[in-house]
Amino acid sequence: MGSIRLENVSKSFGEAQVISALDLDIEDGAFVVFVGPSGCGKSTLLRLIAGLEDVSGGRILIDGKDVTTTPPARRRLAMVFQSYALYPHMSVRGNIAFPLKMAGAGREEIERKVKDAARILNLEEYLDRKPRQLSGGQRQRVAIGRAIVREPTAFLFDEPLSNLDAALRVAMRLEITQLHQKLKRTMIYVTHDQVEAMTMADKIVVLNGGRIEQVGSPLELYRNPRNLFVAGFIGSPRMNFIDGAEAKKLGAATIGIRPEHLRLSATEGLWKGRVDVAEHLGSDTFLHIEMDGIGPLTARIGGEFPVRVGDTVHVTPEDGKIHRFDEKGLAL
């Protein structure tokens, strides 16, 4: 079991309120991603759940039990840190065995569980090395190994991949997702990278300025963003926003269209503009177009698209793909 419930949880550091009273339900076994720009309070929220910070108000419940004042050691949660936070004076074996030793496990049990974890994470040949003799990806695996051996109620990940290079990040992302499927435990994952959020999560919690903007599955957020912030944050490249006369025609203060929902033509379309920059990725083409009377738009076209800088193009949004927002930025 590993359900987590936040009731009216808030956190202030002195005068500054970092988290303003929020409620959240995390079901047992879910992979929940906290995402948002830096300074939005996502790491603080994770640290509140971990018990590394004290809440300023509200309650935290794990499996229905109030743990608001329980120290981190007794919450039965495991955490993987951005900096890996391995014990530099211990070998890989010592690092992975540490939580078991703290829990008072017997020598044989420790040996068996460390071996299991090392096998799952491909660390068997490194067990006697010190952390400084490992690469970034291996260190991250050791940190995960240390988390899985004690079979925690839930795993907390605090931007675990942001110190890795791009290729390794993609590989580790997959490994963590597979680990979740194998262990079927609750995982809470903090990231500022919306691609990580979209690819890994069962449920995404979008945070901004210490408040929850929206909670939902990746596709729910993609299809029905509740407000301008979520609409702009989820999806890559970012959603195009248009306000003024074009928006008024549709009865909104602002309208939003995702780059992949724009149809391009050389001869006819709703709006006309000039290509400013063309990015050819092979699988996709990103066009930055300066539209007459609207401003800049980004369009994403599947495959190769024969166009050059300065060419005139016509753009039409797909039917039913326009998002409408009112003056307050809320979806209509």
Partner: peptide, 12 residues
């Protein structure tokens, strides 16, 4: 963070 990791790992 290393000390916090120890706390998370169940160390008093």
């Amino acid at each position: 963070e290393i000390l916090e990791a120890a706390r998370m790992d169940g160390a008093s």
